[in-house]
Design a protein around this nucleic acid. Structure first.
Length: 266
DNA sequence: AAGGTTGACAACCGCAGGAGA
DNA sequence: TTCTCCTGCGGTTGTCAACCT
């Protein structure tokens, strides 16, 4: 028997998400939690498949996400982790607080890959590109660069905690009501992302007195408020705890880089 | 100004693995 | 043990803005 498709092909919307859809999804998840992705679109009133909802949440709407380009330290960390783990983006992302596997994958393909090639380093093997580096100077330069990046990574790796999200980095905090623009329009301008997130979060929760933030369990979840019901509070507390454990507190303190999962498919 | 090209990123697709019945 | 469902993952495609001619 064939595998059941993740969603009905008919009547399921595809393509870019609208602000309204984002609001519905965020609202639902923070009200009910991430119960069952397949059921969420129906319950939330979305004409999307569960998979699409999950992707949208994990890659874009999650409140703990950092936005903007990876900084230099993060890039070096990605390079180092890629050298160890290969294209296991989820594992790499797990070590970069507030970054998603999709984001890192995209950044790798559009920025880092080219950068490494330019430096004379094979982005797959992380070995010098002898063929491409046609002159001894090129090779020398490439190796210097490579040594440099390895060294930088070595210096950075033991204190990866430094990369953890600071509260000021979270630009998607509910901070007001920045726009009265047509809500059905897609916010395509990357520069509008912050406004979009502010809008979604503020419209959905601030105006409804949804948020009642009391105390901060961790920096990375400081943008959360606590829904009123017990279940929601529990979910949010767990989420904050998870975020703290996953992204923030003591993440690398005992981590031996050599203990990274190097086996298996994933 | 218009059309074509490129770059960046969001989103989709299909497969694999885990969990539960 | 097998089957089914759900989720996660990595690769790929689609979309759109910026840039170029």
């Amino acid at each position: 028997m064939g595998r059941q498709p993740c969603c009905d092909k008919l009547g399921v919307k595809k393509g870019p998400w609208t602000v309204e859809e984002d609001k519905k999804l965020v609202n639902f998840i923070l009200t009910h939690g991430q119960c069952c992705w397949r059921a969420i679109p129906k319950l939330a009133g979305l004409c999307r498949c569960g998979k699409s909802c999950r992707l949208r949440w994990t890659n874009y709407l999650r409140p703990d996400l950092k936005r903007g380009l990876l900084n230099e330290d993060e890039e070096q960390l990605v390079i180092d982790l890629h050298a160890r783990l290969g294209n296991r983006w989820s594992k790499i992302a797990a070590r970069l607080p507030g970054r998603t596997d999709n984001e890192i994958k995209n950044h790798w393909n559009t920025h880092i890959k080219k950068k490494l090639i330019k430096m004379g380093i094979d982005p797959i093997t992380h070995e010098p590109l002898h063929k491409e580096a046609s002159t001894p100077q090129d090779l020398c330069h490439a190796n210097d660069q490579r040594d440099h990046h390895v060294e930088v990574t070595r210096q950075n790796s033991p204190k990866v905690d430094d990369h953890h999200v600071s509260s000021s980095d979270n630009s998607n905090a509910p901070t007001g009501n920045p726009s009265t623009a047509d809500q059905s329009l897609r916010w395509s301008n990357p520069g509008d992302d912050d406004l979009l997130m502010s809008y979604i979060w503020s419209e959905t929760f601030v105006d409804d007195s949804f948020w009642n933030l009391s105390g901060t369990r961790s920096e990375s979840c400081s943008n959360f408020g606590l829904p009123s019901s017990e279940d929601n509070s529990e979910w949010l507390l767990n989420s904050c705890k998870d975020f703290g454990e996953e992204f923030g507190l003591g993440l690398f303190s005992e981590m031996d880089m050599n203990s990274l999962d190097m086996g298996g498919k994933h």
